[in-house]
Amino acid sequence: MSSLLEREATATGTTGGRPPQRRRRQSRAQLIVRTRPWLLLAPALILLGGLLIWPLVRVFLFSLQDYGLREIVTGESNYIGFGNYAEIFANPLLWTVVLPNTIGFAVVSVSATVIFGTLVAMLMASLGSVWRTIVGSAIMVAWAMPAVTGTYVWIWIFDADQGLVNETLKNLGLMNESFNWFTNPFTFYAIVALNIVHHGFPFVAITVLAGLLGVSKEMIEAAEMDGAGPIRRFFAIIFPTLKPVFSVVIILSTIWDFKVFAQIYLMPGGAGSNREVLNLGVWSYVESFGQNRYGFGAAIAVLLTVLLLVITAIYVRTLFKEEKE
């Protein structure tokens, strides 16, 4: 039953449905039908409204205040207009470190995750069922590793004094002295990227694989007969068919990678002592809780949200445009 459903789910393209047709058309029944969706939505919407949307409004209100520990304790407000924003935009750290780190890292890790995940998916699609299951399970293991755990494992692998990488390089004679991988922003973010890609590609691979299995074999074979190489075939047939899958995968990865926090915060120097590696999330957290400047931290958070909302808007537009067609 379930496998049937899965196939149905991937194959059918219709969305929504018709409201149930009732024989008797009493106004009371109609009222029920009309309110039913709202009744069904109510618990979820109440929860989201109370715990995501209202807090989001409050973040914005905080960001217009000089909001410190005193204000939190007493509940007073202390509006200062857009002072926090002015300070953020005047801070050279934003332009030279924080924004480049945030955006640059998201671009690099999103493309690395998506490309690598897609390649793995294509590899898996070409494997027999036994090996596909083996690789699939291995991928699950990588995915299942909690971010905190994974981060500590990578920290240890790259540890300057006892880490595997340094030991190996030294034993191979490629390096004379231990190198501290966490002090240089590039190697720091390279490790974060490795961590993120390792943790993130399984989602891409599994999703794309499921999509790939739905692409019609005939079309690919026909293209092969026409002499199209693998790259041509990918861009001419597979990519267009899987476009919705890719758009979802890319946008979700973007959101997740923009918001990366724990993987940076837990790294040596990542919690603020190495200024070169700050990103928007960590910066906001450090300013809020270290400095008790919740207003300033909130303003940074608003900035991050706006950035993501712009990306979302683009996503929603492409998605709903396709749905309408």
Partner: peptide
Amino acid sequence: LTVQMVPLEALVIPLFVQ
């Protein structure tokens, strides 16, 4: 869809108060 985009760190303080 949009609320998925909200960065969680942004909500630490208001949710804490909530």
